[in-house]
Design a protein around this nucleic acid. Structure first.
Length: 449
RNA sequence: GUGAGUGUAGCUCAGUGGUAGAGCUCCGGAUUGUGGAUCCGGCUGUCGCGGGUUCGAUCCCCGUCACUCACCCCA
């Protein structure tokens, strides 16, 4: 019998869960400080809710659920596991609009499923940590979201991370200015997005292969390469770097796409100095695959990690696909698994996460003493201590060995002598010291230890 | 969907065309009211699965499955 979890799925043992809960706790705390409220939605959605929202590639990766009963044999699917948290949010907003505030700000930490081929930091079941703000077109939303995501990373101990920022409208304008036919915009973006991975020559080759005219491709590449080269000097004065990129974009676009340019300028202007704003970099080559983005787009990068730690953007049309009328929206998703992978590699978890599962272990002396041992455990628990009871009467040495192997700092021993005098022996497994104390004083000794 | 690598004890891994070993873990003992260190002893394998070549395959060949990594795409 093969006992592996299903492909791309994982079991989380206690240490894993403690780490996950720690990170999720930080994320929830930061998001709540920005006024976001929690939301949860079902793992399963009606399949038509999901199809057509993620682009062709995305649709292929949706885990579909076959019809039950009569429809089962036809092999048709009517349900699917959710692919992200954004589309379910859009459905929720459309469904419950009357009960939600005018500006609905929610965060959501739940697993999503993708029928991808697993890889490093990539799984078929993984948690996303989304924050989204619904109902406003103001760029305050973008600025606050970037700031919140940056706060999360800082609180977790990330020092050098980049919040890449771009705008779908500006990208389209650039492609137009370069003379790329509208039908090839998608292909061109896919190729340009790989600039940091395959370099200018690689991108040029791919552009040619995808049928983009050489003249336009050359112009785009030259621009992107010079911006990329300047990134290395951007750390000293990020604001100046971003303004310089904006000015160059302005020149290239020659007055077109003024609305998109205005939005980018607003975001950069609104970033609070000293906070996450110092990590925001305008990056005209950032594209992002999901088809529902309409305005600003973000991606979170850290050094030495292929792929991103998270991403997001503005999607003003998605909710309208469910509701009929348009509702503006913008959000960011953090990838919990990738954060955990990087934090694990860099030893970024606090020491106390590895802490023992209990403060004290109550040993067993004899079968006759079991009821009294359980009573002692109950007394200590009522004092707020975490108490593990060794489940069997066994050699004392074996019980101590077990407590020691579990890193439990204290054990109590009640043998015949203690029982006769109403005393309890408390042993500190760290120092080896032990003392015999009156039963009522055990809790005090343990807390002091 | 494409490509590469790896599948041997609970874990990490050696190894050989004549059906297997180490370290760690685990269990027992030295020490039946005292753990971590040390010493002694012990358990565990359809060598991923199916087929082929061979007198004989864990080893060579083919297929298959799983895992890992990379591409694609993405968090």
């Amino acid at each position: 019998m093969n006992t592996n979890p299903a492909r791309g799925m994982r079991d989380f043992l206690p240490e894993d869960v403690r780490r996950r809960q720690y990170v999720i706790g930080v994320i929830a705390d930061v998001y709540q400080r920005y006024g976001f409220e929690p939301l949860e939605t079902p793992a399963v959605e009606n399949i038509e809710t999901l199809l057509g929202k993620y682009g062709e590639e995305g649709d292929r990766l949706i885990f579909k659920i076959l019809k039950r009963g009569e429809g089962a044999e036809a092999g048709q699917a009517d349900l699917a596991l959710r692919y992200d948290l954004t589309v379910p949010l859009a459905r929720v907003v459309a469904e419950h609009r009357a009960r939600l505030p005018k500006f609905f700000k929610r965060y959501q930490v739940q697993p999503v499923w993708r029928a991808d081929r697993p890889q490093k930091g990539r799984f078929r079941e993984f948690y996303q940590c989304d924050v989204d703000a619904i109902g406003s077109r103001a760029m305050v939303v973008e600025a606050e979201l970037l700031s919140a995501a940056g706060d999360v990373l800082s609180r977790l101990g990330f020092a050098s991370y980049t919040l890449r920022l771009n705008h779908r409208g500006v990208l389209s304008g650039l492609l137009e200015a370069a003379g790329v036919p509208a039908g090839l915009h998608g292909d061109a973006l896919v190729a340009l997005d790989k600039l940091d991975k395959v370099g200018p020559e690689g991108v040029a080759a791919e552009l040619r292969q995808r049928g983009v005219p050489d003249a336009g491709a050359g112009m785009l590449l030259e621009f992107f390469s010079s911006v990329a080269a300047a990134q290395h000097t951007a750390a000293a004065d990020p604001a100046a770097f971003n303004r310089a990129v904006l000015d160059r974009l302005e020149t290239l676009l020659a007055g077109t796409r003024s609305e998109a340019m205005g939005e980018l300028r607003d975001i950069v202007r609104l970033l609070v100095p000293g906070g996450a704003g110092a990590h925001v970099r305008l990056d005209p080559s950032l594209a992002r695959g999901l088809s529902y983005y309409t305005g600003a787009i973000f991606e979170i990068a850290v050094p030495d990690l292929a792929g991103s730690l998270g991403g997001g953007g503005r999607y003003d049309n998605l909710i309208g696909m469910f509701l009929g009328s348009e509702v503006p929206a913008c959000g960011i998703s953090l990838g919990l698994e990738r954060i955990l992978v990087v934090m694990g590699e860099r030893g970024m978890f606090p020491d106390n996460l590895a802490k023992a599962p209990a403060d004290v272990m109550v040993t067993q002396w004899s079968v006759d003493g079991v009821p009294d041992a359980l009573r002692l455990a109950a007394e200590l628990r009522s004092e707020g201590l975490r108490v593990e009871v060794y489940p069997e009467a066994d050699k004392l040495g074996r019980q101590l060995k077990y407590a020691s192997s579990r890193a439990i700092p204290f054990v109590t021993v009640v043998g015949d002598e203690e029982a006769a005098t109403g005393m309890v022996t408390v042993k500190n497994l760290g120092t080896g010291e032990q003392q015999r104390v009156p039963r009522a004083g055990v809790g005090g000794v343990l807390r002091r230890g």
